[in-house]
Design a protein around this nucleic acid. Structure first.
Lengths: 339, 339
DNA sequence: GCGTTGGGTGACACCGGTGTCCAGACGATC
DNA sequence: GATCGTCTGGACACCGGTGTCACCCAACGC
């Protein structure tokens, strides 16, 4: 180690008595190569521990092998799950994952993203919700010469560039489950306006109610911001209704935890007095008391597919780009009490 | 946009009627340049929207501008906090952050890290606990020509390459706080053996007890894995002791949540019957019931400094590399009940 | 035996920057 | 007016790969 410079293609060429071009052919697995030449070169490569310089390769090929992940931290576990999913795909390839958290409220958001992509000459980028819902950002990335994959909770785009989960159906099932448990007065806490996911979940809720022959009551519906505090406030509103709900569906887990706090402060027992279902299956969901029934979407698998669509557009275009979420049944949703 | 190729240094040189070298001098803010020449070139750069190709630069300079973050997901929020801290430093520089989650139990861990660094020709890497505690990994990265910064909870290394938080002191204070609240029977759940952080926190616990004039009792001490389930098991053990504790310090929040579950299942009320303090201040800590008193360490600030040490070793060597954690007082630790 | 074919290989330019070194302009000095 | 030093800026090679194209030579058909 540490004998200074790393070996280059020239060193390999010299030591194996062939031209650099031939070494290049070996590296790139060119088919028109004599087997004995290949073996000779490969043995020299192994001996030297030669690894091609990616920067030189990128320069010569006029394309590089960096894929960017642009997100606005919707939730730490999701972001990390996505990173792991992407790594599942690019491990053992020459690609690397470059992350770039941004602030979606920043007035310089466009410039920020533009600089990131231009400066690193990214090959492709992946957008996470809620950023992925914005067509202007996707267009910006494409104009800059990147292929784009958007993860989201609804079809937004042509299949080849989108990976989605079916939030709407998942919520419909969750609400159906509450109805099965005997609940007929089911509250709802929506996500923030303007979020595709929020809208999808709301539609799912309404469809679920309808499917159970119930009708929505604005008195036990509220809108939150996906944050804990907003969930708590929403819970307070719902529980103060003339006829409070016996069950609530919350559009994400954080807000569900807030509702739980609101219920506790009112002296209610969860789940006996109030069943709660959340969405996302974050770590918190399993660790609060009672453990939260929630919807889990397959983030890592989605991200893995998304990355495949990015780096192997041809072969991955045919892969399914629609993922189904599961209802994880835990202790926070129980049959409606006899009372 | 999209007129195909991006402008290169040659385009800029041609249009401004100077040589590429002069353009290069403008980009690199060389001082021996006539002001009028500089302005002329700068205006052409602006007009063309020219951005230097980082791969070509990296090739010519024989160094590149990628810094790697290697971690084994100790906890999603921490990893994301670190990423944001690093970005705080490298935003507006030419550096980019490449992430590489690994599995520390993988038999190919060394090869995996080696390939990552060699293939991307990383400039520097940052190691997160528990990986950062392993000298073999730090040595591996250094042998591969990277500068290394390790984040951890104890001094491990020369200052220039280490950023640490003082876990021991923080735990000492937390235990002192429990003693102040009147608790004299304080349980402890340690982290897994072989973890520096676990050891530091245990020492802090013992010192805290000693400081309050108390002595440790093995019957109300247990070891966990930093995972929720292990915390629950540890809690069950502690609460089954002949004389159960009235307060417990848990070496992280996840295990604290587990202890809370164990207490609940025994019909105990937290905090009235049992006070609990955790460590890390994860999102969960604030969202469980009751909100968890816990130790928060300044992850983002630490990561920011760590990144500065990586890319500006000279000027950042003098920055402090030791960060203090805070005790966040919430509802899970209260004065010992009169009972 | 000779021309043709085509697989295997190398010479060379090029990708887009930077380092080195040298040349020309210009003012100061003698 | 000649010499010198300083200041600017350019020519050229080089970083480590890849694309293009020409070349060599064995195998083949006639």
């Amino acid at each position: 180690m540490a004998e200074g410079q790393k070996p280059t293609i020239n060193d390999v060429a010299r030591l194996s008595g062939v031209s650099k071009k031939t070494v290049s052919r070996v590296i790139n697995k060119s088919p028109l190569l004599n087997a004995s030449t290949r073996e000779k070169v490969e043995s020299v490569i192994a001996e030297l521990g030669y690894v091609p310089n990616p920067q030189a390769r990128a320069l010569a090929l006029r394309r590089n092998f960096l894929i960017g992940l642009i997100h606005d931290n919707p939730n730490a576990q999701m972001v990390l799950g996505v990173q792991e999913g992407i790594l599942d795909t690019i491990r053992d390839t020459e690609f690397a994952l470059v992350v770039h958290p941004v602030n979606r409220y920043s007035p310089t958001l466009h410039d920020d993203i533009r600089r990131f992509i231009e400066q690193q000459r990214l090959y492709g980028v992946m957008l996470l919700p809620p950023l992925s819902e914005r067509d202007d950002l996707a267009d910006l990335c494409r104009d800059l010469g990147c292929t784009v994959v958007r993860m989201g909770s609804a079809r937004l785009d042509e299949d080849a560039h989108l990976v989605a989960s079916n939030d709407r159906q998942a919520v419909r099932e969750a609400v159906g489950w509450l109805a099965e448990l005997g609940h007929s007065r089911i509250g709802f806490v929506a996500g923030p306006e303007g979020f595709r996911s929020a809208n999808e979940r709301e539609q799912g809720f309404l469809e679920g109610l309808a499917g159970a022959g119930l009708s929505p009551d604005p008195a036990i519906m509220a809108r939150g911001t996906y944050r804990f505090e907003s969930g708590k406030a929403a819970g307070e509103k719902l529980l103060a209704a003339d006829i409070p709900p016996t069950a609530v569906f919350s559009s994400n887990d954080e807000m569900a935890a807030g509702i739980l706090h609101a219920a506790r402060e009112r002296g209610l027992n969860v789940p006996d007095d109030l069943s709660i279902i959340g969405f996302d299956d974050t770590a918190t969901a399993a660790h609060i008391w009672p453990p939260l029934t929630t919807v889990r979407w397959p983030i890592r698998a989605m991200a893995k597919t998304a990355a495949a669509k990015l780096i192997r557009p041809a072969s991955a275009a045919s892969e399914p780009s629609f993922f189904l979420s599961d209802l994880i049944r835990r202790a926070s949703a129980v049959p409606r009490s006899a009372a």
